[in-house]
């Protein structure tokens, strides 16, 4: 088991290094630099700027400098947000993105389970057809469309919640819903399938024959079996929510790291983009590593390694 974990950990670190290297050089290859604008800079001014950010050094030295700082946990100064360093920006943006992602995941699981169970208990009935059509619609509509529609209905016309920005709990309502919607649908479909097939399982028939209440049958005998596929779905879903937040933060003007990522990429803010990439990939690698650990704990064939 220890050997297995060490192996996974080494692979994770190698992957992280590879991601950092590729993104670092890709960014430098991209046309346009952080100080390009409509106006052209006199050469002495450009030289001053490049010196201030070590951009006058050869590329391999810039990379070494970056890695050296990264090892000490320093993500460097932001090229475009000149009054902040990247650590400061990430530490302000990460809580916003995390809150958004976790709330959306919770909402997706809870609402998805409820919808899926309701539909699964009435297979083929109008309620089932109606709920599943709605889910399909949800899956088909991208967040970039659903977001503005939600804003129009609930913020502009009904004025129940703010249309964008951050600061209070209410600012999170629409973004969380927009982010969770497709996942609600996906979870609902998974659970529905599980509930339908669980309905014909012998132990459920037995439970019914014993005269257990419908609530007990669903809660204790059907949902647990129906939820098993959900566990393997959660891993990719968490990653999907992370990347999905990039879009949602743009639509709702939320100051999370996804927004920094987009703004940073547009502005060629090398260090900011690198910083977010490091945080994102560390998070994803960590999820995967934890999943590996969980598999190891469950599967004796891996444990034996």
């Amino acid at each position: 088991m220890t050997r297995y974990l060490l192996k996974r950990l080494t692979f994770s670190l190698i992957t992280l290094f590879a991601v950092i290297t590729v993104v670092f050089f890709l960014l430098r290859i991209a046309p346009g630099g952080p100080f390009d604008g409509e106006r052209q800079l006199p050469p002495e001014i450009e030289a001053n700027l490049k010196a201030a950010y070590n951009l006058d050094e050869p590329l391999y030295r810039q990379f070494a400098l970056y890695l050296g700082r990264l090892v000490t946990g320093d993500l460097g100064p932001s090229f475009r947000q000149k009054d902040f360093d990247v650590n400061e920006l990430v530490s302000r943006g990460l809580p916003v993105s995390t809150a958004l992602g976790i709330s959306a995941l919770l909402l997706a699981v809870l609402a998805g389970m409820a919808v899926g169970t309701l539909a699964g208990l009435h297979p083929g009935k109008p309620l089932d057809v109606w709920l599943m059509s709605l889910s399909n619609l949800n899956l088909a509509i991208p967040t970039i469309v659903a977001g503005p529609v939600l804003i129009l209905i609930f913020a502009v016309f009904l004025r129940w919640v703010p249309a964008g920005g951050s600061g209070t709990f209410t600012h999170f309502v629409l973004p969380v819903i927009a982010l969770a919607l497709p996942y609600v649908a996906a979870v609902a479909r998974l659970i529905r399938g599980g509930i339908v097939s669980a309905g014909s399982e012998p132990h459920v028939t037995t439970a019914r024959a014993k005269g257990l209440s419908p609530g007990r049958i669903v809660g204790f005998h059907m949902l647990p079996t129906a939820s098993i596929p959900l566990i393997s779905f959660l891993g990719p879903a968490a990653a999907g929510l992370l990347t999905g937040s990039v879009v949602v933060e743009q639509i709702f003007d939320l100051p999370g790291i996804g927004r920094y990522f987009v703004q940073g990429a547009l502005a060629r803010d090398y260090t900011l983009v690198m910083g977010v990439v490091v945080v994102y990939s560390t998070a994803i690698l960590l999820f995967n590593f934890l999943a590996d650990v969980a598999y190891g704990l469950v599967d004796p064939r891996i444990r034996a390694l």
Binding site: P162, A163, D253
Partner: peptide, 18 residues
Amino acid sequence: YHPVVNEQGGYNRFRNGE
């Protein structure tokens, strides 16, 4: 001062009184 990156978003927030 709020950074408004897309016009539609800013317009919505104006209409909403934010």
